[in-house]
């Protein structure tokens, strides 16, 4: 590994993951240490028991009401998150082998599914970004909103670049992640020799930055949404 790769795709990854984990823990602590107001803020009608739990999950994952008031935005947001989930699951393969049946299926569909999801992410992120340049989203937005979208776009574009063009075998990526896990980060010969190595390092760099900022940004809604949607149904 060259020095730049070592610092960015090695050392910085550990820092980013540590900040991510500790940051999220700190953020959760900040929320939970404040007393909850005894005021029940829920909207009526209030579902009970199993229906309530189901509703909270549906509100958080599908937010069907939003589709009624702004269908295009709802569709984009829904597809974006779906693709994000898909990409996240896809990246889990880097950590180790899935059960054999899944491993085979995923391996077969990786190029098509990963590519599709990557494109969905780019398109929806562009849409989110462009709409923020138009009133009234423009006046509503603060620099954080643009920063996060641009950062996400960067991560995704570099990821797509690797997914669609780089001829690096999957085993090489897996080897790299394994080396990270073993605390001895290094690139195998396929990556080291590939012209796409820089793209990979930039992809990892932007992802690191995203991980570092995430716990302190509005992106914590990926946890918080369950909590606030719980309040709405109680």
């Amino acid at each position: 590994m060259d020095a730049f790769s070592f610092w960015v795709a090695g050392v910085m990854v550990y820092v980013a993951v540590a900040v991510l984990v500790l940051g999220l823990a700190w953020r959760l602590y900040q929320w939970r240490r404040l007393a909850a107001s005894p005021m029940r803020l829920g909207i009526f009608p209030k579902p009970r028991g199993g229906a309530k739990a189901l509703r909270i999950v549906a509100d958080t994952l599908v937010f069907p009401q939003a589709a009624e008031v702004n269908a295009p935005l709802w569709l984009a947001v829904f597809l974006f998150h779906l693709a994000l989930l898909g990409v996240f699951v896809g990246h889990l393969r880097l950590l180790g082998r899935f059960p054999e049946f899944l491993e085979v299926k995923m391996s077969e569909s990786a190029h098509l599914a990963g590519g599709t999801m990557g494109i969905v992410l780019v398109v929806t992120l562009f849409y989110f970004l462009i709409r923020r340049f138009k009133s009234p989203s423009k006046e509503l937005s603060v620099p954080e909103d643009y920063l996060l979208l641009i950062l996400l776009l960067g991560v995704v574009v570099m990821g797509d670049h690797l997914r669609l063009f780089a001829e690096i075998p999957f085993s090489a990526y897996r080897q790299y992640v394994a080396s990270l896990l073993a605390l001895r980060p290094e690139f195998g010969p396929e990556i080291a020799a590939s012209p796409y190595k820089t793209a990979l390092v930039v992809h990892v760099l932007l992802a690191n930055l995203l991980f570092i900022y995430l716990p302190f940004s509005k992106l914590v809604h990926f946890i918080g949404a369950f909590l606030t949607n719980g309040i709405r149904r109680s």
């Binding site: 900040q30 929320w31 007393a35 914590v220 918080g224 949404a225």
Partner: peptide
């Protein structure tokens, strides 16, 4: 707690 959620999310 509610206020913090609503401010930050």
């Amino acid at each position: 707690r509610q206020l913090l959620y609503y401010l930050e999310l």
